[in-house]
Design a protein around this nucleic acid. Sequence first.
DNA 1: TGTCTAATGAGAATAATTCTCTTTTAATAA
DNA 2: TTATTAAAAGAGAATTATTCTCATTAGACA
Lengths: 140, 140
Amino acid sequence: MKVGEIRNKLIEKGLKVTPQRIAILEAIVKLNNHPTAENIIDYIRKNHPNIATATVYKVLDALVENGLIKKVKTEKDIMRYDAVMESHHHLYCSESDRIEDYKDNELNELLEKYFEKKKIPDFKIEDIKLQIIGKFIKNK
Amino acid sequence: MKVGEIRNKLIEKGLKVTPQRIAILEAIVKLNNHPTAENIIDYIRKNHPNIATATVYKVLDALVENGLIKKVKTEKDIMRYDAVMESHHHLYCSESDRIEDYKDNELNELLEKYFEKKKIPDFKIEDIKLQIIGKFIKNK
DNA sequence: TGTCTAATGAGAATAATTCTCTTTTAATAA
DNA sequence: TTATTAAAAGAGAATTATTCTCATTAGACA
């Protein structure tokens, strides 16, 4: 994702294009490891040393609200963010905090078909995400 | 889950049986809504007004470590707990904090078969949980 | 280029959780 | 049944992630 692309996405959503917003979105894309706010702050401060903590949190909230990034559910009381917006699943390492994306359209279709037949009573499905917990065999 | 049963589970895991531990496990079972630590504390203090906040957190951690309860992943920076230990999935309301259990063995088998055939490279699956996001049609 | 509103910066405030340390208590053995 | 001991609980302070407040700055648009 290039800066021009980020800029367009912000404009599309009616968000002002600011250097902070660009830097934060860029950071999440570049880090590409479902970073925490702290990870993002550390990364950005290298080039942008004066960005305020609160700004990062506010920008992250704004980006989530506007569908440019997503929050990632974890078992820690620390939020993580994901810039990959296509429907995808997550591989959670049971021994560390590593989280990887898992894209699988065949699986998505399988699930879609399954829940077309088998309805959940009193519930309208909007999205399905798999948390696949396990161990990475090779390390990164 | 009765007190005797809770007692046995604690003994099984080599945990001392204390009134606090029993009360906390009972609370999670009775509340049955994936409560937060705060929910649990409020509930317990009705009958057990002197229990310390730190005790609740420590007991919750001990119960999670020993596999008697599970943490539930959410997008809020607040932890929720679940006393249902059989493999099951969760229905997340997209409009509120409501989370319900979803048990479906047919689905589990489907997924198991699917991932037997289709391996994920460099990853050994231990557990799969679905986060099914949507809307509850009737309210509780 | 000026105006206006929204965004940012800085630091204080808050909320959930963890830590520290003293006291109490459950488990076990005598 | 009582004594012993290690683990657990209690109390409140400390920590950490996140949010709030408000003065200042800067995009967007006329």
